[in-house]
Design a protein around this nucleic acid. Sequence first.
DNA 1: TGACAATTGTTGTCAATGCAATTGTTGTGA
DNA 2: TCACAACAATTGCATTGACAACAATTGTCA
Lengths: 150, 150
Amino acid sequence: MTDRPQLDLANYLPYLINRLGGALVAAMTDKALAASDLTIDMWRLLAVLSYRGAQRQVDMVAMTSIEASTVSRLVTRLARMGLVTRQRSETSNREVVIELTAKGRSLVERIIPCAHKLEEMAAAGVPAKDMAVVKRSLRRMYDNIARQSR
Amino acid sequence: MTDRPQLDLANYLPYLINRLGGALVAAMTDKALAASDLTIDMWRLLAVLSYRGAQRQVDMVAMTSIEASTVSRLVTRLARMGLVTRQRSETSNREVVIELTAKGRSLVERIIPCAHKLEEMAAAGVPAKDMAVVKRSLRRMYDNIARQSR
DNA sequence: TGACAATTGTTGTCAATGCAATTGTTGTGA
DNA sequence: TCACAACAATTGCATTGACAACAATTGTCA
């Protein structure tokens, strides 16, 4: 008698991960981004530019997992909003380098405190020691999958 | 001199969460779902039905965070594929009760082992003790946000 | 060198999604 | 009991997003 396969969602990692991820996105969207007319993907692109400095679009794709064509169009919108500049790379003429403008940097710096507050709010009641375990494990699991699917 | 706000993405929880979430979705999609013509959202609906039994659409919305209108249309497609049935509730005539068909249940039971394998693959090298901390913390953080945004 | 493959970015197209409005039903308080 | 609010599901419509095709540039190796 073979036991029937079951899935205990309340203890299933992908479910727990994506449920929390969705809640974080929703909270971020209407607590920090709505006022600035930013979508969550625009915010991700700006955050990567702030974290890593000027980037090619292909690198932003790698960092955010947003589709290349979507990145292309989002960058167009961000540039039109005056938040980033888009220049041809000096080293290669097919590459484009995206960079935050002063306005873009100032906007990101106004949003970052909200991002930190959101993280604190989510982490309430989770001991620092546990949080360290969580973050380390999340990085490890991502690496496992990224390595596997290549 | 006020220090400028910064965001260390490599240690920022929402980033780590959603990066892993996306990788899990991508891996699940092309390793377990592609062969069955299921999208990730269809799989989520089927998994909820398998986990909780017959459900109203509004409850599936709560469990999956998929938009109500999207659930309505996805259920239509799943019904057309012969994987679920959609019946008016006995207790209330405005509610609809969705239930797995035998075909639907058998499909879910064929996918569940792949889902478990994916979880194992991701968890490789993470001690069971740490994984327990991770799952407990993920639940706690979700509750924090859900409570806050209500 | 020169043909061809790989990389980078953009555009066209169409299905899927989200939001608002709508329909139909059930609950509730005056 | 009746008017009205709340709930559940669906539909219309505009927007979004993904995929494929394409253009342009750069790398590679025979």
